[in-house]
Simulated scan of single mutants.
Amino acid sequence: MLSAAGFGASPLLIQLAVQHFPPWTLGALRSALGLPLLLIAAGLLGRQRRPDAHDLVTALVGGVLVVSIPFVSMAAGMQYIPSGMGGMLYTTMPLFTMGLAALFLKDEPATLEQGIRIAVGIVGVLLIAGPGLIADGLGQAGLGAALTLISPLSYAAGNVWFRRRRKMQPMILAALMFAVGTVTVWPAALLIDGLPQVQPSAAVIASLAALVVLATVAPNLLNYALVQQAGANKAALAMFLMPGFSVVFGMLFRGERLPILAFVGLALVIAASAARLPRRWRTRPQRS
Rank of each mutant, 00 (worst) to 15 (best):
G46S: 03
A232E: 00
I81G: 03
L173I: 01
P243L: 06
M242V: 14
A145N: 13
L100H: 14
S201D: 09
V247W: 14
I192M: 08
F245K: 06
R282G: 15
P11F: 05
A101E: 04
L241E: 00
P82C: 01
A206M: 11
Y224G: 00
P196Q: 12
L33G: 08
A189I: 09
R166S: 15
A28N: 07
A156S: 13
L103S: 13
S83C: 15
P187I: 05
L258C: 07
M239W: 02
G265R: 12
N223V: 02
I260F: 04
D136N: 10
G158C: 06
E113S: 14
G84L: 13
R117N: 05
P22F: 00
F240N: 12
V180F: 12
I205L: 15
V227K: 05
V67Q: 11
A9H: 01
L12T: 11
A135M: 06
G99Y: 11
I116P: 02
V248C: 12
T58Y: 06
R49W: 04
D193G: 05
G46Q: 00
V123Q: 00
A102R: 10
S246Q: 01
V213R: 03
L89F: 00
V123C: 01
T91P: 02
L33P: 09
A129H: 02
F240W: 03
L195E: 11
F178Q: 14
A209H: 05
G115N: 06
S201I: 01
A175K: 01
A32Q: 10
V66E: 06
R287T: 07
V160K: 11
S288A: 15
G181L: 04
E256K: 13
L211H: 05
W186S: 13
M177D: 03
M177W: 10
L33Q: 03
L237P: 07
V212H: 00
D52A: 13
I69T: 08
L60D: 06
G62H: 05
T58P: 04
Y90V: 11
V18M: 00
V212A: 07
A156Q: 08
L266M: 06
M1L: 12
A119Y: 07
A238H: 04
M242Y: 10
A215L: 01
F178P: 06
G130E: 12
A135Q: 08
L16Q: 12
R282Y: 06
S73R: 12
K106Y: 01
L214A: 14
A110L: 15
P200K: 05
M98G: 11
V66D: 07
L37R: 01
I118T: 03
A189R: 14
I172M: 15
A5Y: 02
A28G: 10
P285C: 10
A53I: 10
G244A: 14
L277M: 06
A4Q: 07
G84D: 11
